[in-house]
Nucleic acid binder design. Structure first.
Lengths: 111, 111
DNA sequence: ACGTCAGTACGACTTCTGTCGTACGATCCG
DNA sequence: CGGATCGTACGACAGAAGTCGTACTGACGT
């Protein structure tokens, strides 16, 4: 079962900012920023409990930051770049630049 | 007594995003975006309990989004535009643009 | 069909947030 | 000085958020 993705015009700024306001989720977004799709299991460190990851997928999905698509027995994740860019121009880029400029608090989650 | 303001290079992205990820605080930032200083009591609706406001001043101050300066019996608030711009270029501008593009969830806090 | 693998669902638990009421300290003004 | 005003401090409380273990579903490979 896969949860709910908001339509582009239903994406709420406060939800996006809340979703991005957590180092683990920033790490996820950073990993996905390269483009393309990644399976859930390949995005972050294996140390993290799967149910914890599921929780964060939901937050990012419900806020409109990522898209989640089933493919075989995997779920592929991707950044909703165009939707976010259309809705909040420049926001995602400046956040990504910010993460790169100070990756400390995010690195420990890397795979 | 006035709390702690982080140095510009200690401003953490995740804290800024968390601070901005709340409609009431977005409303505050929006009010301060005009520039200059405003007394605490003039920024939002009078309906809100003063202790609640104090809580949000703290969140915004500790994250580095606003500066708070005593002046007589008032505390003057201002946006830390330059510091944020230097640390996370473009971020604040795109957030402010986002608020203006959809002020619904924020309007009810206006004074 | 069977076991394995990817991810979710659910429940438990702890911590963090948001809100408020009340009490306090500092400042201004008559 | 005495009273009013601005904001903080503290304590209480409900609800949300984050983490995990366990159980489960669905798809794959043999």
């Amino acid at each position: 079962m896969i949860g709910h993705h908001p339509e582009p015009d239903q994406i709420k700024l406060e939800n996006v900012l809340t979703a991005l306001g957590h180092p683990m989720r920033l790490a996820i977004v950073r990993e996905l920023a390269g483009g393309g799709e990644r399976a859930c299991g390949t995005v972050l460190s294996k140390e993290i409990a799967k149910s914890t990851l599921t929780h964060h997928w939901r937050v990012l999905r419900d806020s409109g930051v990522i898209r989640q698509r089933p493919s075989g027995r995997e779920h592929l994740l991707s950044l909703r770049r165009e939707d976010l860019e259309q809705r909040f121009p420049g926001l995602l880029d400046s956040v990504l630049a910010g993460v790169e400029s100070d990756p400390e608090s995010v690195d420990r989650y890397a795979p």
